[in-house]
Design a protein around this nucleic acid. Sequence first.
DNA 1: GCAGAAAATTAGAATCATTCCGAATTGTAT
DNA 2: ATACAATTCGGAATGATTCTAATTTTCTGC
Lengths: 141, 141
Amino acid sequence: MTSQDLISQANGIPEEINGLRMTRQRQEIYKLLMGERSHPTANEVFMRIKESLPNISLATVYNCLEALVQHHIIRQVNFDREPSRYCPNLDEHGHFHDEATGTIHDVKFKPGINLTDILDLPPHTVIKDVEITLRGQLAFS
Amino acid sequence: MTSQDLISQANGIPEEINGLRMTRQRQEIYKLLMGERSHPTANEVFMRIKESLPNISLATVYNCLEALVQHHIIRQVNFDREPSRYCPNLDEHGHFHDEATGTIHDVKFKPGINLTDILDLPPHTVIKDVEITLRGQLAFS
DNA sequence: GCAGAAAATTAGAATCATTCCGAATTGTAT
DNA sequence: ATACAATTCGGAATGATTCTAATTTTCTGC
Ligand SMILES: [Mn+2]
Ligand SMILES: [Mn+2]
Ligand SMILES: [Zn+2]
Ligand SMILES: [Zn+2]
């Protein structure tokens, strides 16, 4: 029974995901992202995570987020040149940025749609990643 | 016959586009973008534009690019957190980033495709802008 | 053409999200 | 326990972009 075991037992997150050891800091950050679903920035994560980890550093928040992204546990989302945001939704989806409220909404693709079907790609192209971003407003109903 | 007239006559770009007065600096930058089509960064524009405008400043390059974007004469393109790139293609299109060469290719949509058709958007949504980005490689033929 | 007024350009300083660094701590394997 | 590796941490450095204030250019009535 290592201390790592105890940490994992306490919050229900396994001690390793996709080959990444889930330290206390990584677990708490991952748990926060799963709970909020608001696509927070690194700094927003930093401010909110202090409740559970008062001594964590901003550098560690960046380290953890990068590790989680690298191991495909979360996704990094960029809007223009704004600070990066982080998303725990691993399903293929796009992001709608509501300019009125500043909120970000996940956007699913309609079933049966294959993105490469609608694009006129050069031949012999291997696509590793697709990103779809929308900006606009939720109109009055 | 103002000096502005003379500048425009010399390079075939009108003295005003979309309500933006096309100064010498704006004209040369626009001409460079139209000619190269390589989606250069602000700094790449700065380095290349010195051939025609040896005394231009980097601040002016940023100012001009922003003015051209604001007046919908060119588009600003972002890949993750890399420096912004600039694109003179005003047709609706996406961007394919070839990781092998670092080059960026415009990607057309297949005819008759309406992007909002394939997305499961929240109701009463007004989309102002859509961005599609692809990363991958051109495979051996 | 000539005096403002307005707009554009410029060099350099400031900003700020992110990355880097080196030291301290923690975890793992033997 | 000891040795080695990985992680965390505070603070410094980075770098694309923006800001500022001074200068230059252009425009708008006369
Ligand atoms: Mn963008
Ligand atoms: Mn991106
Ligand atoms: Zn998302
Ligand atoms: Zn383009």
